[in-house]
Simulated scan of single mutants.
Amino acid sequence: MSSLVVIGGTAGIGRAIAQRAAGRGDEVVVTGRDPDRTKAIAEEIAADVPGSARGIALDISDPTTIGAALADVDHVDHLVVAAIERDQNTATNYDVARAIRLVTLKLVGYTEVIHTLLPRIAKSGSIVLFGGLAKDRPYPGSTTVSTVNGGVTGLVHTLAVELAPIRVNAVHPGIIADTPFWEGKPLDHVVNRTPIGRTATTDEVVGATEFLLFNGGVNGVHLAVDGGWMLT
Rank of each mutant, 00 (worst) to 15 (best):
S52Y: 09
T116D: 03
V113F: 00
L107F: 02
I60T: 12
V145A: 08
L118V: 00
I166G: 06
L107K: 12
I121T: 04
L102P: 12
H115S: 12
T147V: 06
G131V: 14
I166K: 00
I121M: 13
P35F: 04
G32K: 05
K106I: 00
T116N: 05
D72K: 09
L105N: 12
L79I: 02
S61V: 03
V148N: 11
P50H: 06
A134E: 10
L107Q: 09
N89K: 08
D77T: 03
H115P: 01
V80L: 05
L107D: 05
H115T: 14
E43T: 02
A68L: 11
A83Q: 09
K106C: 04
P165W: 01
T65A: 15
P35Y: 06
D136T: 10
A71Y: 00
D62F: 02
V171R: 15
T65Q: 14
P63R: 09
Y94A: 06
F130W: 09
L70T: 08
E162N: 11
N89Y: 12
D48C: 08
E43F: 03
A46W: 03
L159D: 04
H78A: 04
S52F: 09
R167P: 02
L70F: 04
G150I: 06
A47I: 02
G55A: 07
V148Q: 12
L117Q: 07
D62I: 06
E112K: 13
H157R: 15
N169T: 12
A91G: 01
A170D: 02
P138T: 04
R37T: 07
T158W: 11
A42H: 07
I45T: 00
Y139Q: 02
V103T: 00
S52W: 11
R37H: 05
G67L: 10
I100M: 15
R86F: 07
A91I: 04
R86W: 14
E112I: 00
S124L: 13
A160H: 02
A46S: 05
I127G: 01
G132H: 12
V145M: 08
F130G: 11
I84V: 15
A42M: 05
I127E: 00
D59K: 10
P140V: 10
D48K: 14
G55V: 02
L118T: 01
G150T: 06
L129C: 10
